[in-house]
């Protein structure tokens, strides 16, 4: 999906992990993933640069669909669909 498409996407869950550094965003993503159903979309807000690489890899390993990243001022959003 393009960043424009992602921006308009209706998400089922938002996780704000901006207050944490590694491994915080990963742990919060994992926790929140347990609360949604397969097919539902989640966005993780983070300002920890490592998260941009970590979460896509985590999605692949855990069978979730990594959809893309949208940059925002001072942070970014990682979109994923539960597998």
């Amino acid at each position: 999906m393009t960043p424009e498409e992602l921006k308009d996407l209706q998400v089922d869950k938002t996780v704000d992990a901006r207050g944490t550094a590694c491994p915080g965003p990963l742990l919060e993503a994992k926790k929140a993933m347990g609360t949604i159903d397969p097919g539902q979309v989640m966005e993780v807000l983070s300002s920890d640069e490592g998260t941009k690489k970590d979460l896509p890899k985590w999605c692949t390993k855990k069978g979730h669909d990594f959809m893309g990243i949208v940059e925002e001022p001072g942070y970014f959003k990682v979109f994923m669909k539960k597998g």
Binding site: C22, P23, L26, L27, K30, K61
Partner: peptide, 11 residues
């Protein structure tokens, strides 16, 4: 501790 806690995200 970071590796240990991180690993739990991978079940």
């Amino acid at each position: 501790m970071i590796i240990a806690t991180g690993a739990t995200a991978y079940d």
